[in-house]
């Protein structure tokens, strides 16, 4: 099967949150906080972050240095379905799998809620859904795309900021769009995660017009396993050190002294 994914052009996002609503409706995600309104008080965005109950989140970046001068950046954030996925790497139950669409899905009947994947995701995408007590995130609407439909969010997006399709066609489309924006004078436009240099390529990549950090994205996301060999070697070294310390302190030499003490007494 061909790799499928999202290309999100943040320059045409208007922050309507239709994608969030469509995602919640289709995937039957519960309301946060029992449906009670919670306001952040410092932004027009009150969802704040991706979570087990919000698999899509429209990030509002309010860049205002004065009352008259500034801009809004809006970005519909979602699981990146990384080609090299940290969550899939660490999952100890095998609940997280790669599908035939090259997407990453958490099997809800297998997950036991250990939360290792939450710690492993470099983007902070995954969290526990309190309704199930298991880890949840975007499935790229596995059920819909298996039946030839577009994911609910892409279907609902009124400005086509979220585009769904094969990764090859999306990359072509995105590169053309960057060239168009550059030609129009938006020199800051670039693609985030579209090529293999970032975790083997993100199957949900973005067109951005500011540094990744401004959008709450790491500039160089990495796999958790980068620390596996080094961490294990240092641990083994410490183990040898501790073992030797115990060996030399406990060995028979002391027994003679002790026997001596007993004899003296």
């Amino acid at each position: 099967m061909t790799a499928m994914g999202f290309y999100t052009d943040t320059t045409v996002c208007i922050g309507c949150k239709a994608c969030q609503v469509a995602c919640k409706e289709w995937n039957q995600l519960p309301a946060t906080n029992g449906g009670k309104a919670t306001l952040t008080g410092n932004s027009y965005d009150n969802t704040v972050r991706l979570s087990g109950e919000n698999w899509r989140h429209v990030r509002f970046i309010e860049q205002f240095d004065s009352q008259h001068n500034g801009r809004w950046l809006m970005m519909s954030d979602v699981c990146k379905h990384c080609s090299q996925a940290g969550c899939l790497e660490v999952c100890p139950t095998g609940a997280i799998v790669r599908t035939e669409f090259e997407t990453v899905v958490i099997q809800q009947d297998v997950c036991n809620g250990c939360r290792d994947c939450i710690a492993a995701c470099p983007f902070g995408v995954i969290d526990i859904n309190p309704a199930s007590n298991t880890a949840q995130k975007c499935t790229l609407c596995y059920d819909r795309i298996s039946n030839g439909l577009a994911p609910a969010c892409a279907q609902a997006c009124p400005t086509a900021s979220i585009k769904f399709g094969s990764i090859d066609s999306l990359r072509q489309m995105a590169n053309a769009r960057v060239q168009q924006l550059q030609a129009q004078g938006e020199k800051r436009a670039y693609l985030y995660g579209a090529d293999e240099s970032m975790l083997g390529g993100l199957n949900s990549f973005y067109l951005l017009v500011d540094k990744p950090e401004v959008y709450g994205l790491p500039s160089n996301p990495q796999l958790p396993s980068r620390n596996l060999v080094g961490g294990s070697l240092f641990t083994a070294l410490a183990g040898i050190g501790v073992g030797l310390a115990a060996l030399f302190s406990f060995r028979n030499r002391g027994a003679h002294k002790e026997a001596q003490e007993v004899a003296d007494a």
């Binding site: 972050r49 991706l50 939360r115 939450i118 710690a119 995408v125 950090e213 790491p218 500039s219 990495q222």
Partner: peptide
């Protein structure tokens, strides 16, 4: 800015 600051805690308490 360290790239590890864009993550969410796993609630291991």
């Amino acid at each position: 800015m360290p790239d590890t600051l864009f993550t969410q805690p796993p609630h291991w308490e």
